[in-house]
């Protein structure tokens, strides 16, 4: 039933624009680039529902924290203990659902 050629019914940018994020001044995610360079699976890249993790050409991981759902998928699927550290963003910041 999955057709890789199908054009997505909702563009990813539009999808993320439907959610309010109150961006904090500091990141609540940190990524240990050295640990990522040795990682072959990089599960965070595809599993993160907000696509916050992007592989770089040198084998590392570039990450964003601004549009984070604060779900915790990234650190749970990460197979390198401690490569992704994650805490809740500063109170009052981060995702603010209205219809979920």
């Amino acid at each position: 039933m999955s057709d890789p050629e199908r054009i997505p019914d909702i563009d990813f940018e539009d999808r993320m624009a439907s959610v309010e994020f109150r961006v904090a001044a500091t990141a609540h995610i940190t990524v240990d680039g050295d640990a990522c360079r040795g990682c072959t699976t990089k599960a965070c890249v595809t599993a993160c529902p907000a696509r916050l993790f992007v592989p770089t050409s040198d084998g590392g991981i570039l990450f964003n924290y601004e549009q984070c759902f604060e779900c915790g998928t990234c650190y749970l699927v990460c197979n390198r203990a401690g490569a992704i550290t994650w805490a809740y963003p500063e109170g009052g910041h981060g995702v603010a659902f209205r219809r979920s």
Binding site: S2, P8, D9, I10, F12, A43, T46, P49, L76, V77
Partner: peptide, 17 residues
Amino acid sequence: LPALAASRRRPEDLIAD
């Protein structure tokens, strides 16, 4: 979660499916 990671599929693509 582990199967999602192993499948390399995107969550929103699975909703779309």
